[in-house]
Amino acid sequence: MRTKTLIRKELVEQWRTRRLWVLCAVFVFFGLLAPITAKLTPDLLRWLAETTPGVVFQLPPPSAADVVSQYIKNLAQSLPLVVLLVAMGAVSGEKERGTLPMVLAKPISRGAFLGAKFLGLALALALALGLCMVSAYYYSLLLFNGPEPGGFVLMNLLAGLYLLVVLALAFLASTLAASTVMAGVLAFGLWALLLILGALPRIGRASPTALLSWAGRLGVGLPGEGEWLALGVSVAILGAALVGAWLHFRRQEL
């Protein structure tokens, strides 16, 4: 009952404060942007070539693969920033506003409080990503006959796991930091570390960023080995971030 009350409050809060609307709108925007960009880029380049003497562009006709490529780029670069912005104030914001003492003075455990907060954010992320996926797929269907649906869904599941890792890191930062600004800086730092590790030759294969290249391959129906190590590491980072947040928060003096 108590945990249900906390989860319900998180969801209602996201709805009423319009955080959920904004999150969904931004995700849908980037979802729609992928097929539109794939469709318009050759036209733009052709126009550029026509207006610039001596420039010739030779481009293959755009396809669903271009949509997937653009979509993955958005998921890798822009949407994690949105996730960081949404999650960085989850706990630190409550600390700053002073709303925590009255809630935590009730007969609820700190673990239940954190769990409900994370679950609320994860559900919002799932909804936003779902809408992003549907909008991108629908427009791809209209413009390019769409990518193969099974692969596209699997691609989104893997990308969703990547975003969930980013969310968990931002949530950890929000629990550790005393202010939302500090949480934002820390969360961005953790994400940057993830990107740096992902760019390293050997370690990169085990980094959550490797999930995105796997997701991209699945999206265009390319065969290839799965990045199972990256999947395992991602789940481990996710778990470690949540356990870390809980271990810190249960002893935090408020």
Binding site: M1, R2, K4, T5, L6, R8, K9, E13, R16, T17, R97, G98, T99, P101, M102, V103, A105, K106, P107, I108
Partner: peptide
């Protein structure tokens, strides 16, 4: 029951919603 020195609430809630929320927390 505890009232801190500077009670802070979720500003987006109505008092009725806040009290019902607390009701859920106390079971």
């Amino acid at each position: 029951g505890y009232l801190p020195e500077e009670p802070a609430f979720y500003g987006w809630m109505t008092p009725r919603e806040y009290l019902a929320f607390v009701g859920g927390l106390v079971g």
